[in-house]
Nucleic acid binder design. Structure first.
Length: 803
DNA sequence: CGATACTGCTTACC
DNA sequence: ACTGGTAAGCAGTATTG
């Protein structure tokens, strides 16, 4: 054992967990020392606890005594204290119950709930390890200085040094601007599993290849011998241990690679000890897999937020981000892997394919992790969980932290089935082509409404409470009232977010936009913005702990009133409003009038509004939420139309985009018509790649659970019958084949249909033509003109052109 | 009896 | 699995000439 004098340790907090030593829990902080060592800091003094809110029918001391009597020897109740806290803004007196074993909290909660005199049990569902970093105000990815004593690295831990926390731990202010990922070891991996046209089964189908790469290093491939994969998995475990990554990245590994490897390792009798403690990966919160001491990050979670990419395969996402272009890599489908493995002449292609996947994964990590790291240190959730968690939970964890700091008790999650409420205004657009249009956008309208009117569950005036008119803000239309003071929970947090973001944005101006400093700050301000913008939707989410329907309803009511006022003012200024949605207004780009409108909104309404972009031309149909615009820098924006929807064939989307581009850029309808006719001709001649005919739709439930018959459900059923597992959330790609019945009888998974089977006329009539007509119809183009064959309409075209 | 209008279910996007 | 508002396709049924 080394010396046990207290020293100061500077380390970056990466993850937190706990272990039981006998019946005592010990918190484990996983980190990286300033000297590059990998460290753990133990803390054995922290204990699980929860709060009991009395209903007043029983004296507090009597209630405390009743709770003490519930104590069981396996996890004794260590203390029951009277504490003063706040609950939804009101002062309360509560009991804080502390016990020993984290897992026992759940049982105590139930037992306490059954006691008389208990209004509610609070904070019994905060996981113990998170509870610790919340109470000690520690944020993952940030640097801390801690007073520690070094101890021997316990058996089973693979870290350089171990310590116990012996005193203070506080943030290292000197490292706030530092790139949290600098110096971290990142490893990408991907596995290939033997399968031929059916979902592989870990009980019999081997893991034939595993590819891995340490950032900056070479891609390595481990291969099975024939179908025997025991050495592959054992070899993988060895490589992970020797690389010793802090971050493990993959693509969809939480749903595929890890569960498969865990099960396969079990079947083969290999210990999948890839963590820094000798335990195998385990399912954790939000469907993520937890690898002890390492941050297991599934990059698919980031891709889910890339709304521009509809089918989120690794290939598509890497292509979109310019990481690895599809044309410059090997593409295979999962069901071909068995074939490429069995055929020795194709095996090299399979290797290349795996390399390209690993390369793409590492490339995505470089793109995504900086934001993940910032979101982690803004939300307080460890990097491996923060992207797996939905937006609502990310915000909620930060709210829980703020509550702890403010002495606010955290409300429980409760089941609710509440009615709907009115949302934002969408204006009816003026159809047609408009020249020179400015798009005005309110900056963070809803968060600013919440701040300005002190909206929140704690400031809401509840039935029976009386306040003077001048003491409250009253929401228009709905009449909900909010106390003007003191500042509420959400107001305080949002103000901090908004000023923090302002400060970062001004700091950004000191750095060139391509500098690492600028990028880091940009990711940070984006993370803050994400949480701030989620706050309105969060209050209207029935699962939210701080759910407040009236608050959400009031926010949208104020929003409607504000935009209506702005529209009225525009009218008074003689500024034509073409369209508007929620917090945006499309107006004629008359700089002087626009400037006066902006000033009015800022000075009279007290909200920030700015020109977000200017369109040289913008086209609307009668439909709301749909338009195409040509920006001043020559870019085509398509909003809402088929061209940006994931459930139309690539061919139809491409055609519509081209039509929009031709019409907006050249103004020539004839040219657009020719373009469409040409596409139809190619389609009929069989010159269109079948992949462009695939239609993708999300399966939202098991195929058998649908009441309405639909093409993508038929395709999913066909896949199931072929032994391919389809689960809710899966994107089903199908093509429509020839035949006479309803569509759903003619849909087939795209990989089960041949080109000859495809019903080309369906794609003409129901895909290409409607998508093109959506725009061209407005210019008087008919279906006939797009579809009409040969000479006659060529002649017609000729005559039209001549006029 | 077939065409058309309407409704419900479903998905996706703003 | 953050909100409400909106468009739209297909299946199935009602309406109607």
């Amino acid at each position: 054992m080394k010396g046990s004098d207290a020293t100061l340790l500077s380390f970056q907090l990466l993850d937190v967990s706990y272990e039981m030593r006998g019946s005592t829990p010990v918190i484990i902080l996983w980190g990286r020392g300033a000297d590059g060592s990998r460290v753990v800091v133990f803390y054995g003094e922290f204990r699980p606890y929860f709060y009991v809110l009395p209903d007043g029918s029983v004296g507090l001391d009597q209630l405390a005594a009743m709770i003490r009597r519930l104590s069981r020897p396996s996890s004794p109740i260590l203390s029951v204290e009277r504490v003063r806290r706040r609950f939804i803004g009101r002062e309360v007196e509560a009991l804080k119950v502390t016990t020993l074993v984290p897992a026992s909290v759940r049982e105590y909660r139930e037992a306490v709930r059954r006691l008389g005199g208990v209004r509610d049990v609070l904070e019994a569902d905060i996981p113990f390890a998170l509870r610790f970093i919340i109470d000690f105000n520690l944020y993952p990815m940030r640097w801390y200085v801690a007073e520690v004593r070094e101890v021997a690295v316990p058996h089973g831990y693979s870290v350089d040094r171990a310590y116990t926390l012996s005193g203070d731990i506080r943030e290292d202010e000197t490292r706030i601007q530092e790139d949290p990922l600098k110096g971290l070891r990142v490893m990408a991996f991907d596995i290939e599993v033997y399968s031929k046209m059916r979902t592989p089964d870990p009980k019999k189908d081997p893991v034939i290849m595993i590819g891995l790469q340490q950032a900056g290093g070479e891609i390595e491939i481990l291969e099975a011998e024939d179908r025997s994969d025991k050495k592959v998995i054992a070899g993988f475990v060895e490589r992970v241990k020797s690389i010793d990554p802090d971050v493990i990245v993959g693509y969809n590994q939480n749903r595929f690679d890890w569960p498969y490897l865990v099960e396969r390792a079990r079947v083969l009798g290999v210990k999948l000890a890839v963590g820094r403690r000798s335990v195998e990966p385990q399912p954790g919160l939000y469907g993520h897999y937890s690898v002890s001491g390492r941050l297991n990050v599934d990059l698919l979670d980031f891709a889910e937020e890339l709304h521009e990419v509809k089918v989120k395969t690794l290939e598509e996402v890497a292509d979109y981000l310019g990481v690895v272009k599809i044309g410059e890599r090997v593409t295979l489908e999962w069901w071909q892997i068995g074939e490429y493995w069995d055929d020795p002449s194709k095996r090299e292609i399979l290797r290349k394919y795996l390399r390209d996947d690993v390369r793409s994964t590492m490339g995505l990590a470089e793109k995504f992790l900086p934001f993940g790291a910032e979101l982690s240190q803004v939300s307080g959730l460890p990097l491996d969980q923060v992207m797996a968690a939905s937006v609502g939970f990310r915000l909620e964890w930060r709210l829980i932290r703020e509550a702890a700091k403010l002495g606010e008790l955290v409300p429980n999650r409760v089941e609710r089935s509440e009615g709907r409420y009115a949302g934002a205004i969408v204006l009816r657009p003026k159809p047609g082509v408009h020249e020179d249009i400015a798009v005005l956008d309110f900056a963070s309208m809803y968060p600013n409404i919440m701040v300005k009117y002190n909206v929140g569950p704690d400031t809401l005036v509840r039935p029976g409470e009386e306040y003077g008119e001048e003491e409250v803000y009253t929401a228009p239309e709905v009449g909900h009232k909010f106390r003007k003071s003191p500042p509420g929970f959400f107001k305080k947090i949002l103000e901090r977010f908004l000023s923090w973001r302002r400060q970062i944005r001004s700091e950004m101006k000191k750095h060139p936009p391509d500098s690492p400093e600028y990028k880091l700050l940009d990711e940070r301000q984006k993370a803050i913005k994400l949480l701030a913008n989620a706050s309105y939707g969060y209050m209207g989410w029935p699962h939210a702990r701080w759910y407040c329907r009236e608050c959400a309803e009031a926010v949208t009511a104020w929003g409607r009133s504000i935009i209506r006022t702005a529209i009225r003012k525009a009218g008074e200024l003689g500024l034509e409003v073409i369209y508007g949605d929620t917090d945006s207004l499309f107006v004629k780009n008359d700089p002087e009038k626009v400037e006066r409108l902006i000033r009015f909104v800022e000075e009279e309404l007290g909200f920030d509004i700015k020109v977000d972009k200017v369109y040289r031309r913008v086209f609307f149909t009668e439909a709301k939420k749909r338009y195409v615009g040509l920006t001043v820098d020559g870019k085509i924006d398509v909003v809402g139309f088929e061209a940006v929807r994931g459930d139309w064939s690539e061919l139809a989307k491409e055609t519509q985009f081209k039509v929009a581009e031709i019409v907006l850029k050249t103004g020539s309808v004839d040219e657009a018509v020719d373009y469409v006719r040409n596409i139809i001709e190619k389609l009929r001649r069989g010159q269109v790649d079948m992949r462009k005919l695939v239609i993708w739709k999300t399966l939202t439930r098991p195929p058998s659970m649908y009441e309405a018959r639909q093409p993508h459900v038929t395709a999913a059923l066909l896949m199931e019958r072929a032994g391919i597992k389809v689960e809710p959330g899966a994107k089903i790609g199908y093509v429509v084949t020839k035949g006479s019945g309803p569509l759903y009888t003619r849909a087939k998974p795209y990989f089960m249909a041949s080109k000859e089977e495809v019903d080309v006329e369906y794609y003409v009539d129901k895909q290409v033509v409607p998508a093109a007509l959506r725009i061209l119809q407005y210019f008087g183009v008919t279906e006939k003109r797009l579809k009409g064959g040969g000479r006659q309409s060529t002649l017609l075209d000729f005559m039209r052109r001549g006029k």
